[in-house]
């Protein structure tokens, strides 16, 4: 999948080092934070190449600087656990590579395993996902051939939606259709299979370092679905505040 960006973690455009940490952050900034987290998590489920690990380490440092914001969210503890485990493991990349192959070789992080109505790896679910991606102007990338139902690709797609939402927040409240698409993608796809995938990982590989990654992404995705629902609920109740507004 390609949207004019490389498939690499890229937290910096949203959250710059040294950004002022106010007690209250407006929603536009929260959306940028979500974007950065989705990108980081997407990279977490790609093969741990050396260059990717370096970029992820940098992303963790940037995100750790956002702790006053991050600790506002319920997914903070699982995220922190994975971030610390990752930094620890990144010093021995061979160990991480072994853990990656060990776990995801036997338990592929692909939605079709859990959701395809016919139980096929390249079945109807793949077509449905491709249609959703194409609907947002994304086309499969030859440079990064990944199955569209891979966890990393689904997380990347959410990052793409968050990026679009964040740019709309600059002008004012975002398009409700975009928020609805986020909610529907989370509830119909990511959230629907992640809990079962996480359960399998816990059962099959309780000591694998990627268990922390799976638990963190599960907590984050469940939270994000609730978060988007809450924003939509407020939008339905009486409109959203201006995204660029100051502290509350």
């Amino acid at each position: 999948m390609s949207s004019g960006r490389k498939n690499q973690p890229e937290a910096r455009p949203a959250l710059r080092r040294g950004m002022r940490m106010e007690e209250a952050i407006p929603l536009s900034e929260a959306t940028r934070l979500r974007y950065a987290l989705y990108r980081f998590f997407a990279a977490s489920f790609l093969y741990p190449r050396r260059d990717r690990l370096e970029q992820m380490e940098e992303a963790v440092e940037v995100l750790k600087a956002c702790t006053p914001w991050l600790c506002r969210f319920a997914f903070y503890e699982p995220w922190r656990r994975w971030a610390e485990r990752f930094l620890e493991q990144a010093e021995q990349p061979w160990g991480l590579k072994l853990a990656y192959t060990d776990l995801f070789g036997s338990l592929p992080p692909q939605a079709s395993v859990y959701l395809d109505p016919d139980g096929l790896i390249r079945g109807r679910l793949i077509s449905e996902l491709e249609a959703i991606y194409r609907g947002m102007g994304l086309v499969p990338s030859g440079a990064y051939p990944m199955p569209p139902d891979h966890l990393a690709v689904e997380l990347e797609f959410m990052a793409f939606l968050c990026q679009r939402e964040a740019s709309i927040w600059q002008e004012g409240p975002p398009d409700l259709r975009l928020l609805s698409l986020e909610r529907s993608f989370l509830s119909r796809h990511l959230r629907r299979w992640l809990a079962r995938f996480a359960r399998d990982v816990r059962r099959q590989a309780p000591d694998n370092p990627y268990r922390d990654a799976v638990e963190a992404v599960e907590a984050f995705v469940v939270h994000d679905a609730d978060w988007v629902t809450e924003i939509l609920r407020h939008a339905a109740d009486g409109g959203l505040p201006d995204g660029s507004a100051g502290s509350g």
């Binding site: 209250a24 952050i25 407006p26 929603l27 969210f73 407020h234 959203l240 507004a245 509350g248």
Partner: peptide
């Protein structure tokens, strides 16, 4: 409305 949905109240 301005205070709504700011993280300080989450």
């Amino acid at each position: 409305r301005r205070a709504l949905l700011h993280l300080s109240w989450l």
